[in-house]
């Protein structure tokens, strides 16, 4: 029996060399270990043997079967691998061909700047509020300390829509007046109000009759000018880099007192002097101040108990400085080749 088995196995080892395809594998399986395969057949006449012999033969045949199965299995694996490799090779593509471009849109450059402001200020507890662009004179001027006929009013700069009652807001400050008057003078306020405003300016590279302001207001207890400076420093660092330094210069605005002009250290030359900062090392970025007594009073707050600060940035100016844009009309006559670049995250 042993000889017979060895002979079958060596025959198998010979045969297996010619196995090339999956069909060959099926065939060779059938020939040796299939239902009537050569090895399976060895068990057929077992009843002719004594129980001891049966046991011995059974063992020999089982070993042989395992060996054969392993031999064929190895071969099968080899062939499958070859077939797979061939298939993979065929499926190989030119990965250098162009990608299918996924449709994505970009924000307006102004919206991108506004989102930066929103991120910073919302994290500090400021709500983002909007108001009507067609505004009442009362909110746009009167409550901000500019009664009708006041010489400091820019009547000629304002687009009036209906007599002297309704106008296209000339700044976003009326939103502040609206929010303040809605609080009955007994709730703190923390808001920013990015939005459109309009003035009678002739459009050119640096002027636009329509523009975007980002104003902010806090009304609370014991708010100081230095709090304004710290707050402005936070947003300017976000916009123009961590090493940005802020500076205040005295100024005068109707709605604030004291009023300041806000400068940042030049992000381009780091103070050495360049074109952008006109060799001063500093760039003016907006106006701000401590909320004026009259504005607080007019909007229902007791100025002896409450105080606050307000600031205003021009979204266009911030974007022009930050991204090196020279013409304000870029924001309103959009060339998509310029705009689509802004579908991108930035380091913060």
């Amino acid at each position: 029996m042993k000889e017979k088995v060895e002979q079958i196995i060596s025959q198998l080892q010979e045969d297996i060399k010619n196995v090339k395809t999956t069909q060959d594998v099926v065939d060779i399986k059938a020939k040796y270990i299939g239902k009537s395969g050569l090895i399976t057949d060895l068990m057929k006449n077992m009843k002719d043997y004594s129980p001891e012999e049966r046991k011995e033969i059974g063992q020999i045949v089982n070993v042989a079967k395992n060996e054969a199965t392993e031999l064929i299995g190895t071969k099968e694996e080899e062939i499958n691998k070859a077939i797979l490799n061939e298939k993979l090779e065929k499926e190989a593509i030119d990965i250098s061909l162009p990608a299918t471009e996924i449709a994505t849109g970009a924000p307006s450059i102004l919206e991108k700047v506004i989102e930066d402001f929103e991120d910073v200020f919302m994290s500090m507890g400021y709500d983002v509020v909007d108001g009507p662009e067609l505004e009442e004179d009362r909110y746009n001027f009167e409550l901000l300390g500019l009664p009708k006929g006041h010489p400091a009013r820019d009547a000629q700069d304002t687009f009036y829509v209906k007599g002297d009652e309704l106008l296209l807001r000339s700044h976003t400050s009326p939103v502040q007046a609206r929010v303040m008057t809605s609080k009955n003078g007994d709730e703190p306020v923390r808001i920013i109000c990015p939005g459109k405003a309009y003035r009678r300016d002739d459009d050119d590279a640096t002027h636009s009759h329509q523009f975007t302001q980002i104003e902010g207001l806090i009304v609370d207890k014991d708010i100081k000018l230095s709090d304004l400076k710290g707050t402005v420093t936070v947003i300017c660092k976000r916009l123009f880099g961590e090493d940005t330094v802020t500076r205040f210069r005295p100024s005068y605005y109707q709605f604030t007192e004291p009023s300041v002009e806000m400068d940042i250290s030049c992000f381009n030359c780091k103070g050495k002097g360049c074109n952008i900062c006109k060799n001063t090392g500093w760039i003016t970025i907006g106006g701000a101040g401590v909320v004026h007594y009259d504005v607080l009073k007019g909007c229902g707050y007791d100025p002896n108990k409450w105080s606050g600060f307000a600031f205003g940035f021009g979204a266009e100016r911030c974007a022009m400085l930050k991204y090196g844009i020279n013409d304000i009309r870029t924001f309103y006559n959009v060339d998509l080749r310029e705009s689509k670049v802004f579908d991108r995250k930035e380091e913060q």
Binding site: E118, F121, M122, S123, M124, G125, Y126, D127, V128, V129, D130, P188, R190, I191, I218, D220, K221, D222, I223, K224, L225, S226, D227, K229, G230, T231, T233, V234, T246, R247, F248, R249, P250, P258, V260
Partner: peptide, 25 residues
């Protein structure tokens, strides 16, 4: 203040309650 010089201003932040900023309306 303007004569004393705003260069003497420190960076401080308002000491106010903590809250979450929301989009209104």
């Amino acid at each position: 203040g303007r004569l004393y010089g705003y260069n003497n201003l420190e960076d401080t932040l308002p000491v106010v309650g903590t809250k979450r900023g929301v989009y209104v309306g």
